[in-house]
C-alpha cells in the first residue's frame, strides 16, 4: 500500500474557513415540518449550504413522509435505511492478535439531530425544484423494532423496507411482503447489526499484522501503525 504522496507526517489538514451563514431555504423546510407536525419534530441539524437533518417521533413517521413528499415537495425518493449506534464489540479487527483485546465501548452516542435509542431509521428524499435534499431520522426503541411503512408515501420504498427487515430486524408495519431480499432463506441473524460478528475474522487473524516486513532501506522495525 503506497503511502499518500506528498504527505508530511505531522502536517495539518487545510481548513476551509467559513463564516456561519443562515441557510434560508433549509430553515424554511424545518419551519414547514414544525408547522405540520408540531411537537413530533424532536430535533434538527443544518449544515449551511449543504444538508439538512430532521428527527421526528416514530409515531409521526408516516405523516412526516407525507409532509416531506407533498409540502416540502421532495418527490424524488432516495433511500431508507437504519443506523445501529452500538459501537462494535469486535473492533476493526486489525488489532494485534498477541495483545490483549481493547475494552469494548458500550456507550451509545448518536449523531446529528440527536437520538435516544440504539437503532435509528433514516431516509432521504430530494426536491428537484428547490435543489435540496432532506434526511429524516427517527428513533426505534429496542423492545419494539417496528415502524410504519412508507409504502403509501413512496412506492419505491418497498425494497428498502425489505432490506431494513433483513439487515436490522426492523419491521415495517403495513408492508405486507417482507420477504428476504439478499440472503438465502436459511440465513440466521441480522447482518448489519453491530453485534453480528464476521466469523472469518475471528477464525483467522488479519494477515496484514503478521506479515509486515521492514523495507530493505529501513534498518529498524516495521511501521508501528498498522498500515500495510
Amino acid at each position: 500500500m503506497s503511502p499518500l504522496s506528498s504527505a508530511d507526517t505531522d502536517a495539518e489538514a487545510t481548513e476551509a474557513v467559513e463564516t456561519p451563514e443562515v441557510d434560508e431555504a433549509r430553515e424554511a423546510v424545518v419551519a414547514l415540518f414544525r408547522e405540520e407536525l408540531g411537537d413530533a419534530v424532536l430535533d434538527h441539524h443544518i449544515r449551511p449550504g449543504d444538508d439538512l437533518w430532521i428527527r421526528v417521533e416514530r409515531a409521526a413517521w408516516r405523516q412526516a413522509g407525507f409532509v416531506l413528499r407533498d409540502r416540502a415537495r421532495c418527490k424524488a425518493f432516495g433511500f431508507l435505511s437504519a443506523i445501529d449506534w452500538l459501537p462494535s464489540p469486535y473492533g476493526l479487527g486489525e488489532d494485534s492478535p498477541t495483545d490483549a483485546p481493547p475494552e469494548p465501548d458500550t456507550e451509545i452516542v448518536t449523531g446529528y439531530a440527536g437520538g435516544d435509542t440504539r437503532f435509528q431509521v433514516f431516509a432521504r428524499a430530494t426536491s428537484h425544484s428547490a435543489k435540496l435534499g432532506v434526511t429524516l431520522k427517527t428513533d426505534i426503541p429496542d423492545d419494539d423494532l417496528t415502524l410504519d411503512t412508507w409504502l403509501s408515501v413512496y412506492a419505491g420504498v418497498d425494497w428498502h423496507e425489505r432490506e431494513l427487515r433483513e439487515m436490522f430486524g426492523i419491521t415495517a408495519i403495513g408492508h405486507g411482503h417482507l420477504a428476504p431480499l439478499y440472503l438465502p432463506g436459511e440465513f440466521e441473524g441480522h447482518p448489519l447489526r453491530k453485534d453480528f460478528p464476521l466469523l472469518a475474522r475471528h477464525v483467522k487473524a488479519w494477515p496484514g499484522i503478521v506479515d509486515v516486513e521492514p523495507m530493505p532501506a529501513e534498518a529498524g522495525g516495521a511501521d508501528e501503525e498498522a498500515s500495510e
Partner: peptide, 21 residues
Amino acid sequence: GPVMAKVPRIIKVPEGEAWVA
C-alpha cells in the same frame, strides 16, 4: 499544480455524518 493536498499519513476522519451523491 499539485495533485494532492496535505493530509496526515494515517487518515482519521472527525466525527460527523456526510452525504455525497
